[in-house]
Computed example of a mutant assay.
Amino acid sequence: MLRGLLSPKWVGLFAVVLVVVTACTVLGLWQLGVARDEGHKQAVASASQLQPAPLQQVTQAHSAFEAEFSNRPVTVTGTYDDGRTILVVDRRLGDRAGSWVVTPLLTDGGTVAVLRGFVEGLPSTPPAAPAGVVTVAGSLGPTESPRPGAALPAPQRRSVDLAALVNEWPGDLYNVIVLASGETDATSGATSGAGPAAAIATPGLTRVPPPDVDTPLNLRNAAYAVQWWVFGLFAVWMWWKMFRAEQQAEDVPAAQREEIHA
């Protein structure tokens, strides 16, 4: 059998099979990439179609963070507790290194952690939060886990760990983070960043975009990827089947000759 496998005929056919398998593998990986891209486009389209909803209609204080909350657009109205603002260190925004500015927003339904934005470096004093009643527009994100390291001086933190902040911030705490995209003075309706009519602005503070949405695979393209890989396995199976058939055909006359000589 080994001698037959090493014959020029079967070595050549095996080389052809390797080319076919390689092509099927590459095409399958390409279709898998298309499946991810299409799934991402669909997820982004679905998220963009959601209208901002009041936070109290989406979740309540102390409620668990559900998977569908990620990147959910919301609005929430309350008053910033600026004295409890924290700086979350070792963060990046593009190619810039700096800190997140997170301030508790006191609302009728409880306290909400609002990621107001990003500042470069590590300022000694966080940018002041807007005073008075404001309406924050943004998207939801989950709480963070604690990050190991030496204790930091206030108001610095290594993560937005709501399990620790619940013991430091007043009132019932929402189990979400609101990534602010704009702030409105609830008494005047002026929106931050909305041009000349803007009434709220925080110099030096850059909004943090929401994290990328989950990208489930597009099932149709994923199925195409699996089909290409099956075709590759089928080519290997056919090569082996043809080789075994030839070997069995050659073995029969040899057995008959042994019977005649016997």
Rank of each mutant, 00 (worst) to 15 (best):
R96M: 10
F231K: 07
Q31E: 10
W229P: 07
A15Q: 06
R158S: 10
V226L: 15
K41A: 15
N71S: 04
L2I: 14
L5V: 13
P210T: 13
P8N: 03
G110I: 11
C24T: 15
S192I: 13
A43L: 15
E120K: 11
D185E: 12
G94L: 08
P127R: 13
F231I: 11
P104E: 04
L13I: 14
V176N: 02
L13W: 14
L87D: 04
I200A: 00
A61C: 08
A254L: 14
V20Q: 09
R147I: 09
L122A: 06
V134Y: 03
D82I: 00
V213I: 08
S159A: 15
P127H: 13
D82W: 01
Q156V: 04
D37T: 11
N218P: 01
W30S: 12
L179I: 14
M1G: 08
P123D: 08
V74R: 04
R96V: 14
I177F: 06
P153N: 07
K41I: 01
Y80K: 02
P155G: 08
P203N: 09
E183Y: 02
Q256M: 10
V16P: 01
W169N: 10
L55Y: 06
R91I: 05
V74H: 02
V133T: 13
Q51E: 13
D172G: 07
V88K: 01
A199V: 08
T143F: 04
L87H: 06
P209D: 03
Q248E: 08
A201Q: 03
V226Q: 15
H40G: 15
T215A: 11
V102G: 04
N175Y: 00
T187S: 13
L27S: 12
G109Y: 14
P142M: 13
V101C: 00
L217C: 14
S124M: 08
G182I: 00
T107L: 00
K41C: 03
T79Q: 15
G232F: 11
V114D: 01
R96L: 12
D90G: 03
Y80G: 01
L55H: 11
D161N: 07
L165H: 09
T85A: 06
R3P: 12
R36N: 08
P203Q: 07
I177H: 07
T22H: 14
G171L: 05
C24N: 12
S63W: 08
D82F: 01
V89C: 03
A255Y: 10
T202V: 10
A249T: 12
V112Q: 00
V74W: 04
L106Y: 03
F65Q: 02
L165A: 07
Q256N: 09
V101S: 00
P209M: 00
H261F: 15
Q60P: 00
D82N: 06
A225W: 07
G78L: 00
V17M: 14
G4T: 11
S63V: 11
L179E: 12
P54N: 06
S70M: 09
G149I: 12
A97S: 06
H62E: 05
A194Q: 12
P104D: 05
L165M: 11
T77A: 09
D185Q: 06
S188T: 15
V160D: 04
G117P: 09
E258D: 13
Q57V: 07
W169V: 05
V134N: 03
G12L: 10
L106H: 06
G182H: 01
P148D: 15
L140I: 09
D82T: 01
L18P: 00
T103D: 01
M242Q: 14
A262R: 14
A225M: 08
Y80S: 04
N175G: 00
G28H: 10
C24V: 13
T135W: 02
